[in-house]
Amino acid sequence: MAEQLRRILEEHPGRYVSGEEIGRRLGASRAAVWKQVQTLRRRGFGIEGARGAGYRLLGRPDLIEKQELFSRLPDASMWKSFHVFPVTDSTNSRAVHLAEAGAPHGTVLCADSQTAGRGRLGSRWESPPGVNLYLSLLLRPPFEPPMAPRLTLVAAVALASTVEEATGLPVFLKWPNDLFLGGRKTAGILAEMSSDLDRLRHVVIGVGLNVNAEAADFPEELRRTATSLRGETGRSFPRVELLSRFLVRFEEAYQRFLAGGLAPLLPEWNRRCLLSGKRVLLRRRDREERGTAIRVDEEGALLFLPEGGRGRERIHSGEILEFER
């Protein structure tokens, strides 16, 4: 009932809603309404009551709570199990442990902060508390292991759609796993899998999205290359709202991927591709080389034209160290 009351108050930002109307919509007595107001206040919501006027919402904590997250998702959602941590070492590490213990497909892990957040190739993901999204999705897909790395691109398309809807700004994707806003990195994706020779056991997709971080929240060496949604728009975003939107968009993209592979999603990736037609410095295995990035293909590979006259190559794994701005 507290979640229903929260939604009623959020429908009228800054304005009073009479106790009579709230009671009618909740099917509850005035005493029961008062009890739910107290419940929300204990959770950190600022609710003002005035005799003869009712209640109004003055402020809310930017917390991610399982109950509110559930209430924002469709009833038929694939997301059925949630784990929310005030602090953890790494949501991906936690997800792997849960997967090995038998946690189901559609498990979501989220943390307010991480002490050992990870990016690709062993890099560290800065994870200050209270401002960003750090989450992992545990999936048990019904396909063979070679398909699993393409889920990084599926997640990127879903996250790009989420950010564009929230900010109204164009998002660009840097193969294979980064999101850019305003020319700076805003999010990263890390996919890990466990498999037998011909069977996937599980895939864990980690997402770090800079939401409300300010310049002072980034290490000095990242302040020129990293940004956040708040940094680009000048306003704050409720993290639980972004998380629920992303889960809905990911489920939509995942179902399209199961039905048709990457082909249905490629136009959305390639129209946002940050690298198309640009000269880049590519690192793969133990060497680096320059060339031109063309686009991403149906298998998630980067089509790459090396300098020096060799023909076009398909790069399945690598890192873009530099690219034309």
Score class of each variant (00 low, 15 high):
Trp175Gly: 00
Ser127Lys: 05
Arg184Val: 04
Gly106Ser: 13
Thr115Gln: 01
Arg201Thr: 13
Ser136Pro: 04
Leu137Asn: 04
Glu214Trp: 05
Phe218Glu: 13
Thr233Lys: 02
Ala99Gly: 05
Leu242Trp: 12
Pro146Lys: 06
Leu200Ser: 03
Pro176Cys: 07
Ala226His: 07
Ser161Gln: 15
Arg124Glu: 11
Gly119Thr: 10
Arg184Gln: 11
Glu241Tyr: 02
Arg120Met: 11
Asp217Leu: 03
Ala226Tyr: 09
Pro176Ala: 10
Glu144Gln: 15
Glu214His: 05
Leu151Cys: 04
Leu109Cys: 06
Glu165Thr: 13
Glu220Cys: 00
Ala187Met: 09
Leu229Asn: 05
Leu138Gly: 02
Ala213Leu: 14
Cys110Gly: 01
Pro219Glu: 09
Gly234His: 13
Val211Ala: 02
Arg118His: 09
Leu159Ser: 02
Gly182Ile: 13
Leu190Pro: 01
Pro128Ala: 02
Leu242His: 04
Ala158His: 07
His202Asp: 12
Leu109Val: 07
Pro146Gln: 08
Leu109Lys: 03
Leu133Met: 06
Leu169Arg: 15
Arg235Lys: 15
Ala156Val: 06
Ala101Asn: 11
Val108Arg: 11
Ala166Trp: 08
Glu232Ser: 02
Ala166Leu: 13
Ser113Ile: 03
Ala158Glu: 15
Glu241Ser: 07
Ser236His: 09
Glu220Leu: 10
Phe172Cys: 06
Ser161Phe: 09
Ala116Gly: 15
Ile189Ser: 00
Glu241Cys: 00
Glu126Ile: 06
Val154Thr: 08
Phe180Cys: 00
Ala111Ile: 05
Ala187Asn: 13
His202Gly: 01
Leu133Gln: 05
Leu200Pro: 01
Ser244Met: 06
Ser244Cys: 04
Gly208Ile: 07
Leu222Asp: 12
Ala215Tyr: 03
Thr107Pro: 05
Ala226Asn: 12
Ser228Glu: 13
Arg150Pro: 01
Asn132Tyr: 08
Leu242Gln: 07
Ser127Thr: 11
Gly117Ile: 07
Ala187Val: 05
Leu190Met: 05
Val207Arg: 01
